[in-house]
Amino acid sequence: MDYPKSVPSVGLVNGKFVNEDAVAGLPGSLIPATWGNSVTDELLNVVKSAGLEPSETDATQLVQALKKISQAGEDKHATDIGAANLYMANYVPAISVLKDGLALRFTAGNANAGASTFAPNGSMPKPLVSLALSALRPAEIVVGSVCSVVYSAALDSWVLVYASGGKGFSGRLLAVKTFTASGNYVPTVGMKNVLVTVVGAGGGSSGIGATNATQVSLTGGGASGSYAQAWLSFDVIGQSQIITVGAGGVAGGVGIGGGSGGTSSLGSLVSATGGGGSPWSTPLTLPGFGLYVGGFPSQTSSGGNLINSSGAAGSPGMCLSGSTLAGHGANSPLGSGGYASSVSLSVAAPGSGYGSGAGGIANTTNQPGRPGAAGATGAVIIYEYA
């Protein structure tokens, strides 16, 4: 669209129309019918493209049409004509220069299977990155996704701000996977980061010996396993990791101390050792005072960039003037230690939940030997985030 410069004798002055000057004897400019019609048709095309019916009496239709077209974003939306991982779209008017902050939309014709690129109007493909500014993971774009992208000159890449139906919502909790037995962890598609909780297994409690008319016997509780939490990215986790879940410390028999809990771990990345079992002690001859230690706590865990904590010691058992009190099993962040069994309760209490120690057991006079109890198993819990 331009002034009718090519029309002879149109009377333009400095390229523009002028009025007639009768005093100076200067004629006014002519407006050719062809030019007038073309200008009118061009304006009407804008009005019609917005779905409006042209009206001679409405002088606001051009403004209405421009607002409607702008709101619809028709000039910034196109259909993907590329392939999986290589997205392409043609916009009208064509995108000829990539400017920092340029925002476009396209409807994806293919799901992405990994790192991807985007190229508007046949330009050089540029990387398509997530809001975390990393290469796209599989299924962040699915078929039919309406994708909003913004060009970053600093990155020389397109940032995927939004993709409907995909798994690219930053920070969204995707899944919680709890391992109570050893196995293999494979990340959920779209996972970017994980919060990992690892607890070692609890220690078992010792058995107690048989007593005669002048003896009592008792034991302390098992220790709890160590504990760790870590925030890890997909780049650190990789495609899979071996999960090891520590077995609870075994119950001690007569003459045998409680077993130590096993170590739990996420590959070589995060590890938590198990708690110690309470040691065996021979019956105490009355009168007398006795203090029977519980299981010793495990070493501090490793790999936890949020928390690294050792386990807690099992409570000691005590005897004073013939009165006995067995030791409680130690609590863990994910479980309660076994209660201390009284003389009337002939069965030791195992640790509950994950990582807690077993409760101790006590005997009064003239009682048979009894076994202890097992510590609680360890656990590895993984919270997956997009």
Rank of each mutant, 00 (worst) to 15 (best):
S310R: 05
V250M: 06
G257H: 00
T324D: 06
L320E: 14
S265E: 05
V254C: 12
G259Y: 00
A312Y: 11
P287C: 01
A251G: 11
G314S: 03
L286E: 05
W280T: 02
I243G: 01
G294R: 03
T244C: 08
L320T: 15
V245H: 03
A349Y: 13
S356H: 12
S271N: 12
F289L: 13
L334Q: 12
L334Y: 13
S278Y: 06
L291A: 11
W280A: 09
A251V: 10
P279E: 02
S302E: 03
G353A: 10
G327R: 10
S336K: 11
T273G: 14
S309V: 11
S302N: 05
G353V: 03
L320D: 11
G274W: 01
S278I: 10
L345C: 14
A313Y: 09
G267C: 15
G267A: 09
C319E: 00
L291G: 09
P287E: 01
F289I: 13
G249P: 02
N331D: 12
L269C: 08
L266D: 04
S298Y: 15
A348G: 12
N305Q: 08
G274F: 01
G329P: 10
L266K: 09
G337N: 07
A251L: 12
V293F: 12
G257M: 05
G329F: 04
G355H: 05
A313W: 10
G258T: 12
T263D: 02
I307Y: 03
H328N: 15
T282Q: 08
G290H: 06
V245S: 03
S356D: 05
G255W: 02
G252Q: 14
G317F: 07
A349V: 15
S342M: 14
C319Y: 01
S310D: 10
V254M: 03
G351K: 12
T324L: 06
G329I: 05
V343K: 01
V250P: 00
G274N: 00
G338V: 00
G353R: 07
V245W: 01
Y339G: 15
P297I: 00
S341I: 14
S268I: 05
